[in-house]
Amino acid sequence: MPTFVTDAIDRRILSELQRDGRMTNQELSEKVGLSPSPCLRRLRQLESDGLIIGYVALVSPEKLGLGVTAFIRVRLDQQDDRHLSLFEEAVAQFPEVMECYLMTGDADYQLRVVVDDLKAFEDFLRHKLTRIEGVSQLTTSFALRPIVYKTALPIGGST
């Protein structure tokens, strides 16, 4: 996986945009100490290079009634390419699955799932997750409350 060498200004641009992706180029240029034109050129280059992959709004799950967060460890009965692909393609279609990681250790996958309530979670398990071919074991832990939740990546040397 290629990495891009960025200088201190690029790292400041990335850090500032992670704090507030809606700021104007003028505001961004002031925060990073550049005039607007070079700042915009650098921003466009960061986007072109794939360092900035998109812009989103962070939405409150609680205000939407999504009160249950579950972490599910999934074991498959076989770890061949066909079963891995089947599982990955299936979970990518489920809106409840916020994150899915292929893991090392005693589970093949770890999922973070967000649903309205325990009934919705049961429906998700019974009608979606356990119906994927090859799923052999599920272990679920429910989040009581978030302690640390970050969306900004740690960008070294950005201060």
Rank of each mutant, 00 (worst) to 15 (best):
M1S: 12
P2G: 10
T3R: 04
T3I: 05
T3P: 00
T3H: 06
T3V: 08
F4S: 05
V5W: 03
T6Y: 03
D7S: 14
D7Q: 14
D7L: 06
A8N: 11
I9Q: 13
I9V: 14
R11W: 01
L14A: 06
S15A: 15
S15I: 01
S15L: 05
Q18F: 01
Q18V: 09
R19D: 10
R19L: 14
D20H: 07
D20E: 04
G21M: 10
R22K: 15
R22E: 14
R22A: 12
M23I: 15
T24W: 09
T24C: 06
N25K: 13
Q26M: 14
Q26G: 09
Q26H: 10
E27I: 08
S29N: 01
E30T: 08
E30N: 08
V32I: 06
V32T: 03
V32F: 07
P36S: 01
P36F: 05
P38G: 06
P38K: 06
R42I: 04
R44L: 11
Q45N: 13
E47A: 10
S48D: 15
S48H: 15
D49L: 12
L51R: 13
I53Q: 15
G54H: 14
G54I: 11
Y55C: 04
L58H: 10
L58E: 13
V59P: 10
S60P: 04
P61N: 06
P61L: 06
P61I: 09
L64I: 05
L66H: 14
A70E: 15
F71L: 13
R73P: 00
R73Q: 15
V74T: 01
V74S: 05
L76Q: 05
D77G: 12
D77A: 10
D77R: 15
Q78R: 14
Q79F: 11
Q79E: 06
D80N: 14
D81S: 07
R82I: 04
R82E: 13
H83Y: 08
E88R: 12
E89F: 03
A92Y: 00
Q93T: 13
P95H: 01
P95L: 04
M98E: 15
C100P: 03
Y101E: 11
L102W: 00
M103N: 12
M103Q: 13
M103L: 13
T104R: 03
G105V: 03
D106M: 12
D108P: 04
D108V: 05
Y109A: 03
Y109K: 07
Q110G: 06
V115E: 02
D116P: 00
D116T: 12
D116G: 12
D117G: 10
D117R: 03
L118G: 12
A120Q: 01
A120T: 06
D123P: 08
D123I: 07
F124G: 00
T130S: 09
T130D: 00
R131V: 02
R131H: 07
R131S: 02
E133K: 13
E133S: 03
V135H: 02
V135W: 00
S136C: 05
L138N: 09
L138E: 07
L138G: 01
T139I: 11
T140D: 00
F142T: 08
R145H: 02
R145S: 11
P146T: 14
I147C: 01
V148D: 04
V148W: 04
Y149P: 00
T151S: 11
T151R: 13
L153N: 02
G156L: 02
